[in-house]
Design a binder for these strands. Structure first.
Lengths: 109, 109
DNA sequence: ACTATTAATCGTAATATTGCGATATAATAA
DNA sequence: TTATTATATCGCAATATTACGATTAATAGT
């Protein structure tokens, strides 16, 4: 096997998993932090700042983009990446309602 | 290659990535929802309810446990799994401060 | 047109994940 | 002790991810 059985889960579970998977790598977390904080939205700059090869950063950026977490705008020779606000908001909401399901006081064991 | 370069990232980035990775699978999201909502904390029950083999569920439970998101208590022949409140709270905080970094109005492009 | 600059893609090797049947382990009950 | 029940682990095949060098494509400047 080795293939996730997406068909047995709800769309919401699958969608949330996809976004979380895109987040679930230290390099991609670092990339997002750079994009947000330092306004370093250029692939080459990120490559230098994070110490990963340009091809690697480009691949991570693609994953973040595919998951809908960032968007890219062509600026001359380079591309400026920034947060995709709509999906970011969606992720925040879905995660919040998921994480807040837990009532810390009521544990079953 | 094929090995994540954890040494070039901060502890916080790595720790957050580990917890998110544990969350980033529809089966594990479903398991957590079951544990939280339906109080179905038994491996066998989860196997029946989710439609995945017992070995598969056990593996997912192990991953959730290793990431610190759940804890298991032996109850006779079976094991009752429930949320690990401390780490759950930690995840909530770390995620919140990360997701709230974004100022939706100020996009660089 | 030519050159420099930047990002994307290709190809590849190493490693990790996913899912399951089969088996092993542990605790309870008879 | 033996049987029963429930979970964990092993072994495996299929698939996915990670990282990077090399190459390609696209734009800007001369």
């Amino acid at each position: 096997m080795g293939l996730t059985k997406t068909e047995i889960f709800t769309d919401e579970q699958n969608r949330l998993a996809v976004m979380l998977k895109a987040l679930a790598h230290p390099a991609r977390i670092a990339i997002l932090q750079q994009i947000i904080n330092a306004n370093a939205c250029i692939c080459g700059d990120l490559s230098i700042e994070l110490g990963l090869a340009q091809a690697t950063i480009s691949q991570h950026l693609k994953e973040l983009k595919t998951a809908g977490l960032i968007q890219g705008t062509i600026e001359g020779v380079s591309v400026c990446y920034c947060i995709e606000p709509k999906n970011w908001e969606l992720l925040k909401q879905q995660l919040n309602s998921f994480l807040n399901l837990v009532d810390v006081k009521a544990n079953c064991c």
